[in-house]
């Protein structure tokens, strides 16, 4: 009986080991996994980013005959992907992951800047206009404690409810609430979609709410928000979060490229470096996608048809 058991154990063991060995193979593996035949763009989960990606891939496919693969990934993950070469470019970075940016751009030198996108991003604290009209002085953070009772919900208990950002977005609101001694509770939103839906609901019901909010944002076409002034941003003032005492940087959104791709990517890399449009341009496409329910490709096609003069100069001459 015992010998049978040993034999069975041995057989089973060999089987498992064999399976492992098969996958291991021999020799060193290829570390760069994406081929060179197509350009991989990292697309974060917001609509503005869809607009960038849609216009870029449509133009590259039609005008330059370059195949583009758009992969959805959030900012932090996208930086890892640029480092490993799994993605070639980020088109819209909000400087939300300074640590990774420093590591890959300055230390490892595997990622390089691709210049400004042209779109200006701004993050801040906002209240709906209907509430600000009633209480004009709410637009200064110092007066928030006067009104905190209006913002109470079942989630925040006795404190006011601060609607925090989705987890992957750059934020230091928790620190601000604590350091300013505000009678608010930071309640995070799990996803941007969840925050949008909640704001839509509250806005429809004309209820007061205080939220982390930003521009450009397609929903700003449907709702009117007023910013609550925070102390002015100075570089590094929000680090570490426990000591943060300032608002957010008004951001020139930046493009980043994988270094290899930037140097050897030819016309495609050149095009991505040239790609630069305004907040209004992006909003126009984003609104077509999110507001009018158009498919990103269709929206891009429409914009491309109407704005030839803008995109003509992005196409490199040798393409």
């Amino acid at each position: 009986m015992n010998s049978k058991r040993i034999r069975n154990t041995a057989i089973a063991g060999v089987g498992v080991l064999g399976a492992l060995a098969l996958t291991a193979g021999c020799g060193a593996a290829d570390t760069q996994s994406s081929g060179t035949d197509k350009v991989v763009l990292a697309e974060p989960s917001w609509v503005g980013a869809s607009a960038n990606a849609a216009v870029v891939s449509k133009l590259m496919a039609d005008e330059m005959d370059v195949k583009v693969d758009v992969q959805q990934m959030d900012e932090p993950v996208a930086f890892d992907a640029l480092d490993s070469g799994k993605a070639d470019a980020i088109l819209e970075d909000w400087h939300g992951v300074p640590k990774k940016q420093k590591k890959y751009v300055e230390d490892k030198k595997t990622v390089v800047s691709g210049g400004d996108l042209g779109v200006v991003g701004h993050i801040g604290w906002f209240v709906p206009k209907y509430y600000a009209d009633k209480h004009p002085d709410v637009t200064d953070y110092k007066n928030l404690n006067k009104y905190y009772k209006d913002f109470r919900t079942s989630e925040s208990g006795d404190l006011g409810h601060f609607m925090g950002a989705a987890p992957s977005y750059s934020q230091h609101d928790k620190g601000l609430i604590k350091n300013f001694g505000l009678k608010f509770k930071h309640v995070p939103s799990g996803t941007e979609a969840a925050q949008l839906k909640e704001m839509q609901r509250l806005y429809k019901a004309k209820k007061p709410f205080l939220a982390y909010w930003w521009e450009p944002q397609w929903m700003n076409n449907d709702i009117e928000m007023v910013e609550v002034k925070l102390p002015k941003y100075t570089p590094g003032c929000e680090i570490p979060e426990e000591k943060a005492k300032c608002g957010y940087e008004t951001n020139q959104l930046e493009k980043f490229l994988n270094k290899d791709f930037s140097e050897n990517g030819g016309a495609a890399a050149e095009f991505l470096k040239n790609f630069k449009w305004s907040t209004e341009d992006q909003n126009e496409v984003a609104q077509m996608i999110a507001g009018d329910g158009m498919k990103p490709e269709k929206a891009a096609e429409k914009w491309i048809k109407e704005n030839k003069s803008t995109w003509e100069k992005w196409i490199p001459e040798d393409a």
Binding site: A166, P188, E198
Partner: peptide, 22 residues
């Protein structure tokens, strides 16, 4: 999953750790 829609607490921490690669 609940962390994605306002559940907060541990669920949110996992989501944030995941999306920030932390």
């Amino acid at each position: 999953i609940a962390g994605l829609i306002g559940g907060g607490a541990l669920g949110y921490d996992v989501v944030q750790g995941l999306s920030k690669g932390n």
